[in-house]
């Protein structure tokens, strides 16, 4: 059972990493728009229309 002397701090460390990631996510604005992102995933397919767009998209990202 001595293993828990190492496991518990390890658990805390992992947890802190999680908190750190969350703080980073908030800071980079990922929680600013909860509705838009949720819906965007569903909107991105192109199921209904099959017409050619006028000109080529120039989106780089």
């Amino acid at each position: 059972m001595e293993v828990i002397y190492g496991l518990l701090p390890g658990m805390l460390l992992l947890g802190l990493v999680g908190v750190g990631i969350f703080f980073w996510a908030v800071r980079s604005g990922q929680y600013d728009d909860m509705d838009g992102a949720a819906n965007r995933v569903l909107m991105d397919d192109e199921p209904v229309v099959d017409e050619e767009p006028e000109d080529e998209p120039t989106r780089r990202d």
């Binding site: 600013d32 728009d33 909860m34 838009g36 006028e54 120039t58 989106r59």
Partner: peptide, 16 residues
């Protein structure tokens, strides 16, 4: 907007 030449990115925030 993505179809317009010269647009690099357009991101809409629905909440705000």
């Amino acid at each position: 907007l993505a179809k317009v030449k010269g647009v690099i990115s357009a991101e809409v925030n629905l909440t705000a």
